[in-house]
Design a protein around this nucleic acid. Structure first.
Length: 191
DNA sequence: ACGATGATGAAC
DNA sequence: TTCATCATCGTA
């Protein structure tokens, strides 16, 4: 069962959408082929008062997609070099979106956009097969016991909002973690 | 721990 | 018209 997610899936509470996006598939059509990756990590940016959200300073040319209808891509550049991929949630005029931070085999919001060739041309476009970038429900369910919630990454400036557990991820089994990744983690923990 | 690298938004 | 600030990543 490969069911393309429509507006109605995204036109709901941002936290629900974020939670339920885990286990869904991010799909990209390039040339004749379609690549599909399970979504493993997301963050919710919820409403005009969320100080970690671009929308917290009101509507601007950049964040306009967040204020529009649900199911639309919001793609923007950070640090002058990285594209971030978000899907707009909630109703019209309620600014909210879910940032896709990781997919199967590719951790990191900038890495996945690079790997899939996602850039600003998707900004403001409805997620759909016609556009070449969409999300599918393939009937796989992630057990609640494997879903972890933590505060969002890189939003320390956001005061109380920085502490909210708006990051959702599929927790990995430590046995399956490769030696190199474990070494890298140990190394980073020294910093 | 830091530099790369450029758009954005706010101050002036 | 500047200027500080980034929803990051790779390298040391």
């Amino acid at each position: 069962m490969h069911k393309i997610l429509k507006d109605d899936f995204f036109e709901r509470s941002t936290l629900s959408v974020a939670h339920e996006l885990l286990g869904k598939y991010l799909c990209r059509k390039r040339g004749r082929g379609v690549e599909a990756f399970m979504i493993t990590e997301v963050e919710a940016y919820d409403g005009p008062h969320d100080r970690a959200s671009h929308a917290s300073r009101g509507k601007t040319a950049r964040n306009a997609p967040m204020f529009g209808g649900a199911g639309v891509w919001y793609v923007y550049l950070v640090y002058g070099m990285h594209w971030m991929l978000n899907i707009v949630t909630g109703g019209e005029d309620y600014p909210a979106a879910v940032l896709i931070r990781g997919i199967e085999g590719i951790e990191g919001p900038a890495r996945l956009t690079k790997a899939l060739g996602v850039g600003k041309r998707f900004n403001g476009k409805q997620a759909s097969r016609a556009v070449g970038l969409w999300i599918e429900d393939r009937g796989e369910r992630v057990p609640a016991s494997r879903i972890a919630r933590t505060p969002r990454i890189g939003v320390d400036y956001a005061g109380e909002w920085a502490k909210k557990p708006y990051r959702f991820m599929i927790s990995e089994r430590s046995e399956r973690r490769g030696r190199s990744e474990r070494r890298r983690k140990n190394f980073l923990s020294l910093l």
